[in-house]
Design a protein around this nucleic acid. Structure first.
Lengths: 175, 175
DNA sequence: CTGCGTGCAAAGTATTTGCAGGGTC
DNA sequence: GACCCTGCAAATACTTTGCACGCAG
């Protein structure tokens, strides 16, 4: 049987992450251990987008001693039970983000400062589903990232350079 | 100066890849060597989406002896001069695709057979630019991938499993 | 108690880089 | 002839895995 994903509970808001996690672990015969509980708290305390490495650093800051192995293993579980989702914005590493209690959204990524901003567009969603159906695909999920330069960076030399280069060549096409 | 990207020529169609490549190399003070020429031919012969590894295999098939180092270095150049673009569809490796003579498009990725289908939607493009502007971003490029199951795979057990799992959990959430 | 979980270190992947000899312009 | 290129192997960066011991249920 597939994990009984409780959409009702999923809509409730903060705090229930633990419940969902516990339920998931139980039905999988897994255990709620100290490291897992700690990670859960650290993650849902406030990060919305983070890499495995950032999370690891955060552990050290808060004196939570966990190995990277456990960290990765836990991220995998959290992704499986839909508390987190993983994205790849083309940087070095994968980004994880909260899913619980969040509407689906897409991302704007600043190529100058790597800041990530979320946005929603039901219209885009609609068009996507439409496009998928036209081509005979059963859509499951999607990932849309718009890469550009944020307002703040557009003022900087770095930001301007990125924009100018973006006009002609994507990476090191300049000079 | 930014690379004088010749949009006119870029619209002409097959064959001019070599010219664009040559022009780019020349103005960068780089050289048109045998390995580079061979790779260019292999790539534009027909692959539309491929990973570095697939290209490498293809080299061996056709008795083109090139090291992976050179292969990656050449892919970087081709990406810089906009003959190729790189995407990350969440699999293990990056996918490269032809840009030359292709309108911008987005992707449908079959999660069962990994087939990639292209589609275009000017309406979606428009909404994206709009969303970016609303948030103060200067959009440079974007990447939209819809993950789902293609018509053919929807008929198979594997495809159905993926769809069912997609309803509740994304990865190994089953049984 | 049984079996999953943990840390550690070693193994993997995918990609990049240093270096010495070779080829292009 | 100068400088860029190439292959090779070693180096990276991120993530996964094997193993022996420890803790949750």
């Amino acid at each position: 049987m597939t994990f009984a994903f409780d959409k009702e509970r999923h809509r409730q808001g903060k705090g229930s992450e633990v419940e969902i996690f516990e339920a998931y672990l139980r039905q999988k015969g897994l255990k709620l251990t100290v490291p897992r509980r700690q990670l859960l708290e650290l993650i849902f305390d406030d990060h919305s987008h983070f890499t495995a490495d950032q999370l690891f650093d955060r552990c050290r800051e808060r004196d939570v001693r966990i190995s990277k192995a456990t960290l990765y293993r836990t991220l995998a579980i959290l992704t499986d039970c839909k508390l987190l989702s993983a994205h790849d914005f083309g940087g070095e590493a994968k980004y994880y983000e909260h899913v619980f209690g969040h509407e689906h959204h897409d991302h704007l990524v600043c190529l100058a400062c790597r800041k990530i901003v979320e946005f929603q567009s039901p219209d885009i969603e609609k068009l996507q589903d439409q496009a998928a159906e036209e081509l005979g695909f059963a859509p499951i999920h999607h990932s849309l990232a718009i890469f550009g330069v944020c307002a703040a960076c557009a003022e900087t030399a770095e930001g301007r350079k990125v924009i100018e280069e973006g006009q002609a060549g994507p990476t090191s096409v300049s000079d």
